[in-house]
């Protein structure tokens, strides 16, 4: 979620490529599967949060039984989606976008806290091979490797407690499972709130949302990148 449009005159000078001649072009940054994954995941997470906090007793707009069924089914679908996406991410090389890095992380954080208020350009220059800024990588990587697995591992244990807990009458372990699941749920909700807010920090409020719907986004490309895309991936550039 970086604001690229004013990157041609970087005040920070961190973006080295700015010296070269650049082209503003619409580039398909999000493939069809990526968009499908993103939005179906979004729907599932909202469904899970709604039904999950119903089961927890925070809200009660739908009956408990319905909430449990919705929650369990949505959970299975999401787990499957995640596993499949993990597979997709690795086989397509997309995983490179998600590897967290400390380089520039602090600058990005400072940009959101101070820089953007002053109208300064985003310090991170996205490239074709690295379309997320370090803060994004850090956030998404945490969600996909820590919060997600925490939620679904504890969730599966929660769902099938009678298979492992059996007749032991040990309710302490069950309580621990619930505790872990709740921690994951709260972290996920906090992430979603932050994520939705950050989405509005683009050139316009809906700039990033639009990009995630159409797949296309204004990008600043070098001549070589334009040539490469026009030659080898004409679908990706307008």
């Amino acid at each position: 979620m970086t604001d690229m449009t004013s990157a041609s005159s970087p005040a920070t000078g961190k973006a080295e490529s700015s010296k070269a001649k650049t082209f503003h072009r619409k580039v398909k940054n999000y493939s069809r599967y990526e968009r499908f994954w993103h939005w179906s995941q979004a729907i599932l997470i909202f469904t899970l949060a709604f039904s999950g906090f119903t089961v927890h007793g925070t809200i009660r707009f739908i009956p408990f039984a319905t909430a449990v069924m919705i929650h369990d089914i949505a959970a299975f679908v999401l787990i499957f989606l995640w596993l499949f996406t993990a597979f997709w991410t690795f086989t397509t090389g997309q995983w490179r976008h998600f590897v967290p890095t400390n380089a520039g992380l602090w600058d990005v954080i400072m940009h959101y806290l101070v820089g953007m208020m002053r109208g300064q350009p985003h310090p991170y220059k996205r490239t074709l091979s690295r379309k997320q800024n370090p803060l994004q990588s850090f956030a998404y990587f945490s969600i996909m490797t820590v919060v997600g697995p925490l939620l679904w591992l504890s969730g599966l244990a929660y769902m099938f407690y009678s298979f492992w807990e059996g007749n032991s009458g040990n309710n302490d372990i069950f309580s621990l499972v619930v505790l872990l699941h709740l921690i994951g749920a709260f972290l996920m909700v906090a992430f979603v709130i932050g994520h939705i807010y950050m989405v509005t920090t683009g050139k316009t409020l809906i700039h990033y949302t639009k990009a995630m719907i159409t797949g296309f986004e204004d990008m600043e490309l070098t001549e070589a990148e334009v040539t490469y895309l026009e030659t080898h991936e004409p679908d990706r550039i307008k």
């Binding site: 089961v55 007793g57 069950f174 619930v178 709740l182 709260f186």
Partner: peptide
């Protein structure tokens, strides 16, 4: 002695979570 979903809260984690 048993956690019943929908009935019970986990006071600390609820407090931290909310």
């Amino acid at each position: 002695g048993v956690y019943i979903p929908g009935r019970d809260d986990m006071p600390l984690i609820n407090w931290l979570g909310y």
